[in-house]
Design a protein around this nucleic acid. Structure first.
Lengths: 160, 160
DNA sequence: TTAAAAATGTAGCCTTGGCAACATATTTGA
DNA sequence: TCAAATATGTTGCCAAGGCTACATTTTTAA
């Protein structure tokens, strides 16, 4: 925790008269920046993971299936798929199913692996599977490689 | 994992001729809905936590301080503060510092407690503090009460 | 075959949460 | 005191990710 910059402070919300210099923690800003970056990738990861899943189950991923499984309208799905297409993660043609590019498949594999570790870790901790399922969906995007390794270490020790 | 609805599927992305009925998992949609709701509260929680922190340190929370510590521009801070004010979490007057309402203080306390548990839990797992700090910031918003309790159980056993 | 149903596409609207640029108020220091 | 520096406010822009309503295409079934 580096304390780098300084800023001034007075008190009680009144004008800034004679604020003294106090330390400012820049690492905090870095942490929020890190979370914001994770959020940007979150949707893409959730979608490619779901698309891979639907393809594994049905041989293809349809807009309706995505809408039902993601819990959003088909209009939202269309918009998101257009973004994923723009970003080179999926291929799709009008009125046809959606498929993953090699890049999309690679991302889906990584996400599924990470998701499974998080889910099994929570279960091993004693969290009920239904809850672990809910939490894993939100948590998986905010786990660094180092923490993921810690989860795996724990799983090996408590082999489940 | 309830399998409730069914939908049809064909194959290979071609038209929908003769799709067979296949199970659809509605719980998945619920999980994403749950994550979306967490996201909506995330900004508010991060801000009130930061504001409480600045008040504890400096006796007040200034727009500049928030901007530096959150890593965003002061214009973004102003917009967000207006929302928090609208939602009854903060009070503020033009060119003056920002303070928490009782509701905001309550939220800040809860968030700090949860944040600390997540942070200490990750440390206890063997994650380096710097990494734990980064991950906790993202993870804390996606931890259910049940999982939080599991973290606390683990901390008691491995008392750190 | 063909009308109805289902799936998909599209347009327009909304909120959130970013930004830069510029305007105004406040604080500081010479 | 008063000019410069700092802090704050405001405006307008953008992208993401929601939605509804309506248009079009495809599939199904009579």
């Amino acid at each position: 925790m580096k304390k780098i910059e300084t800023l001034t402070a007075s008190g009680s919300g009144e004008p800034l008269k004679s604020r003294r210099k106090v330390p400012l923690d820049l690492d905090r800003a870095a942490a929020f920046e890190y979370v914001r970056q994770a959020h940007q990738e979150e949707t893409a990861q959730d979608y490619v993971e779901m698309i891979a899943d639907l393809i594994a189950q049905h041989g293809e991923a349809r807009v309706v299936d995505l809408a039902k499984n993601m819990g959003v309208s088909h209009a939202t799905i269309n918009k998101t798929i257009a973004r994923l297409n723009r970003d080179g993660l999926v291929v799709n043609r009008p009125y046809r199913a959606i498929f993953l590019t090699p890049e999309g498949e690679s991302m889906a594999r990584d996400c599924k692996a990470r998701h499974d570790i998080v889910f099994r870790f929570l279960c091993a901790l004693g969290v009920k599977p239904a809850t672990a399922h809910l939490d894993a969906e939100g948590v998986e995007h905010h786990i660094s490689p180092e923490t993921l390794k810690a989860f795996e270490r724990f799983l090996k020790k408590h082999k489940c």
